[in-house]
Amino acid sequence: MNDDADADADGGTANDGSRLDWETTDSRIDYSCPGFDVRMDDVRLPDGTETDFHYVDEPPAVVILPFTPDGDVVLVEEWRQAVGHVNRGLPAGGTEPDDDDFAAAAHRELAEETGYEADTMEKFYVAEPANGIANSVHHYFVARGCEPTAEQELDFNESIRPTTTSYEELLAAVADNEILDGRTSLGVLQYELARP
């Protein structure tokens, strides 16, 4: 900010004591692993307190709601070590540093995870799914005309099996809390809300 007295839509003003934004005075990677980093920021809080803040630092991700020509949805069954069970949900993946076209990244991730390729890919939603602990941004796409015309190309630490289900069964599984995957639940419900 060049002028602390100026009003800020997100943070209030410096003079009225209502500012919420923190000042980052330094930032560094504390730990790196495949897929994400843990970053530590040195920050100054609105009341002047200086402290640090750790969060997951990861590239933008794409999440795909893929429809076959018959109207079924392509899902993935994937082992999730953090929760110790197989997760059923939408295909998703991180973008690469040189990805400037997220629709192309969504085409690539769909093919790599499922072996399905899409005729069309259209963005319909963007979310910050865990912005209290991560800088993740998820870009949601609906893919149409998906057919199994490619080979899966999984990362060394992925255990994934593609499957299909009807959209109605997927929606019911989300509504009945049978699907616990947050990315999937959010994507399906946002898609359903946006349908004409």
Rank of each mutant, 00 (worst) to 15 (best):
Y167D: 10
E77D: 12
A104N: 05
R108H: 07
A82Y: 03
A143V: 06
E128L: 11
Y140D: 11
Y116H: 08
P91L: 03
E77H: 10
A104M: 07
P91S: 04
E78C: 13
D70Q: 14
T120L: 01
V126I: 14
E109V: 07
A130E: 11
P97M: 07
T114C: 02
A103S: 15
C146W: 05
I160H: 01
T149V: 11
T163R: 14
H85G: 03
P129H: 07
R144I: 00
A106H: 02
F102D: 08
L75D: 00
P97G: 09
N177S: 14
L180H: 13
A172H: 09
E153K: 08
V86I: 12
E158A: 12
G84K: 06
E113A: 10
F102M: 10
S166I: 08
N177H: 15
N157L: 10
F102V: 04
T149S: 14
G84C: 11
A92F: 08
W79E: 06
R161C: 13
T163Y: 03
L154Q: 02
Y125W: 15
F102W: 09
A105Y: 01
P97A: 10
D72T: 05
V76T: 10
W79K: 08
A134G: 09
T164L: 07
L171F: 14
A111G: 05
D155F: 12
H107V: 06
G71K: 05
V76C: 01
L154Y: 03
T164I: 12
T114A: 04
E178H: 14
A150G: 08
D99V: 07
R80T: 11
V73E: 02
A105W: 00
E169V: 14
P162E: 03
A172G: 04
R80E: 11
A105G: 01
D101K: 04
G115F: 10
N87T: 12
E169Y: 08
Y140H: 12
I179S: 01
N135M: 12
G89L: 06
A106L: 03
A127D: 15
S136D: 11
T149R: 13
A104G: 05
G145M: 09
T165M: 09
S136T: 15
C146P: 01
L170F: 05
V126Q: 12
L170G: 00
I160W: 02
E169Q: 15
D99L: 04
P91N: 01
V137I: 15
D98Q: 11
Q152V: 03
G115A: 04
S136I: 13
Y125M: 10
F102Y: 13
V174F: 02
P162A: 08
A104E: 13
A92D: 14
D100S: 12
R161D: 15
F141A: 12
E169G: 07
F102G: 01
D176A: 15
